[in-house]
Design a protein around this nucleic acid. Structure first.
Lengths: 113, 113
DNA sequence: CCTTCATACGTAGCTACGCTACTTGTCGAA
DNA sequence: TTCGACAAGTAGCGTAGCTACGTATGAAGG
């Protein structure tokens, strides 16, 4: 799918992926691709800046490690990040219902009961 | 809701509103507000440029009329617009499923059956 | 009469944010 | 030794919605 439509929801996706355990950037990209059956194939230029944004916001924390001579920055959800994720989930739900009222089939204009 | 999350979905909303009949810009804003129970209260600076974009793209057509001394530009879906709306609906569905896999409750990681 | 508010259109400039394209570097395989 | 997967990152661009204006009419209220 056209990924630009993610606008505003990327942070939530990243937090959701990290909810299941700490990962490094590259692995996050792979996790998104895997869990979406390839629909979400996000470039590094999207992920890395987003992760730094989340870190600045205090929603994730990172630690460096070296594995096989390769530098890895591993990201982990903070408590604030977990709270933020809950908020993002609520926001996503409202968004999905609101937009769905216009775009989902079944009950366009006047559907009282 | 924070309207910036609409990013990329606004066109679809406008087409969906016009699907039920031609409306002028101001009325479109009111229709969005009404059908979303007030969640979508979009400023004119968002709607008018968007409508012109849709017109340039050939998805809507506009006709001027004067009602009570007030100028009205009434927008109507074109056939291409109707096709575009169908595409937007499909895109919305895929988007909602993909993002939902991460943010909706119920089936986070490995849910085979 | 004059102000104010709802109606109705519109533009200029800002900002957020995801994307493209690029760089740096290690390691394993061909 | 060259190429591709792994791993991180930045600079600059484009899209698109938002803020804050500006214009104009008609109705309501003082």
């Amino acid at each position: 799918m056209k990924a630009q439509e993610l606008h505003g929801h990327l942070d939530a996706l990243l937090l959701a992926v990290l909810e299941q355990g700490a990962l490094h950037g590259y692995a996050i990209i792979e996790a998104l691709r895997a869990r979406s059956d390839g629909s979400l194939d996000l470039p590094t230029g999207t992920i890395y800046p987003a992760l730094r944004r989340l870190e600045r916001a205090g929603h994730v924390a990172s630690t460096w490690s070296t594995v096989n001579g390769r530098e890895r920055r591993t990201y982990e959800l903070t408590d604030a990040g977990r709270r933020a994720l809950a908020g993002e989930r609520a926001g996503w739900h409202e968004f999905r219902v609101t937009v769905g009222r216009f775009l989902d089939p079944g009950s366009p204009p006047g559907t009282p009961a």
